[in-house]
């Protein structure tokens, strides 16, 4: 039930990251760049799109396990929204499998609680295997 605890990654979440992430993922939904429209839809502010969150989960795994790590699968569930002017703190646990594969369980928390929880299935790059 236990694996290797991975280092924490703290990502400052600015308005620039939320809007930049939305556009880099080609997501033009107004709630990800237009605060007025977001309020009309019942959200206090713009919030991060799931494609950016998914990408940041990928980034966390790449930074912890090395950029040559192959990601086979990602399963994520969103919890509380990610608004700007906050910090997204990733923590994770790596459980090795057979033949250089492994599972990373990841949680990304902000000041409201868990923004994202999930598991990532990876194959380590040759040089990262022990």
């Amino acid at each position: 039930m236990s694996g290797e605890t991975l280092p924490e990654l703290r990502i400052p979440v600015t308005r620039k990251l939320i809007v930049g992430g939305a556009i880099a993922t080609r997501d033009y939904q107004d709630v990800h760049h237009d605060a007025v429209a977001a309020k009309e839809r019942g959200s206090p502010d713009i919030f991060m799109n799931i494609l950016t969150t998914n990408g940041l989960v990928g980034r966390y795994v790449a930074e912890c396990l090395g950029p040559g790590t192959q990601v086979w699968a990602v399963k994520i569930r969103l919890g509380v929204p990610q608004y700007p002017d906050d910090e997204l703190v990733f923590t994770g646990e790596f459980t090795p499998g057979d033949d250089g594969t492994g599972q990373v369980s990841v949680v990304g928390r902000n000041r409201l609680g868990a923004h994202v929880t999930g598991t990532v299935t990876v194959v380590l790059a040759e040089e990262a295997r022990e």
């Binding site: 990251l17 993922t25 080609r26 990928g58 040559g68 990602v74």
Partner: peptide, 30 residues
């Protein structure tokens, strides 16, 4: 490159697209 830049994601050394970018290629855009 734009995606890696915005998300702070390391560029894959083999020149492939980061896996978690998958859905981006299907997005209709503006």
């Amino acid at each position: 490159r734009h995606w890696c830049e915005a998300l702070g994601h390391p560029a894959p050394p083999d020149g492939s697209a980061p896996a978690t970018m998958l859905q981006v290629w299907t997005m209709a855009g503006y």
